[in-house]
Amino acid sequence: MKSVGKRAAIFGITMLIVSFVTFAAFTLISGDPAMRLLGTEATPERLQSLREQMGLNQPFAVRYLRWLAGFVTGDLGTSYSYNQPVWQLISPKVEVTLCMVVMSFGLIVLISIPLGLFSAQRAQGAEGALHTSLIQLAMAVPPFFTGILCSWVFGITLRFFMPGNFPGLHQNFAGSLHYLFFGAICVAIPRIAMTVRMLRSTIVGEMQKSYVRTAIARGNDRRQVLSRHVLKNSLVPTVTFLAQTMAEIVGGSIVVEQVFSIPGLGRFLVTSISNRDYPVVEALVVILAFWVVLSGTLGDLINQRIDPRLRLGGES
């Protein structure tokens, strides 16, 4: 339990640092938001009153603490371009992206683990080389290209879904999931290949260790050794890798959302960057960072459950 507390503390500190760096960076680059809103022609009096209204006349530390307090209570500021609370703009998009990312992660786990086990047992010779080449090929396909192919084949030609016609999570939940499924596949394909590759090299590496030789020498058959000993020892690196994957598929989803016109967080991030809508970008960066740090923390916690040595290591 102590180790969980410690991990939670690290999580909190990391998020604090991330939020501080983000806030500092955007304060630095956004210049004078009051000037941006009113234009360069504005009278000094109006600028001054808006600055006071926005709290810009306060010292940096006070502004950071206020922003942080706002973040915790769900007040993420006001968008420059839409003049609406950022949270109101973001929350429906977060739901959409979360749905797709979770679906994509599910696909990765369900497909790559059996494939990785299969491939690890046939790692030798020509068949191994074939697997390696197929893995490299799948890793080479960028998600937006698969996305374009998908919308051409399954969308325009076969009419399984209407590209550009996202039903909306609250209007038609099943229909939305059906639509997001195609995006989720595109995000998943290269990641599946990477996971298979990782699993294969982990298991093959583990099979060369002396405990495996001993177990086989004692008369166990290879399958038994694989399922009883090797898989257990491969679990920790796999969990770490999957945690990292969970963080990184958000990056892939940014592009796929654009291909399928999915109104998600990534697409909104891109438009906000183009519009220089800093409060929105700032909030999105912190939310994405939260997701990344959360994935890492969850991975660590699961690993500590699996391998008691990690728990001890954390406390000593």
Binding site: T14, A25, I29, A247, G251, I254, I273, V285, L288, V292
Partner: peptide, 18 residues
């Protein structure tokens, strides 16, 4: 460590934003 924790595309997007 802190920098590589972020998806590289996201980091690049933020820098382009700047």
């Amino acid at each position: 460590d802190a920098l590589t924790a972020f998806p590289s595309l996201l980091m690049a997007l933020v820098i382009i934003g700047i």
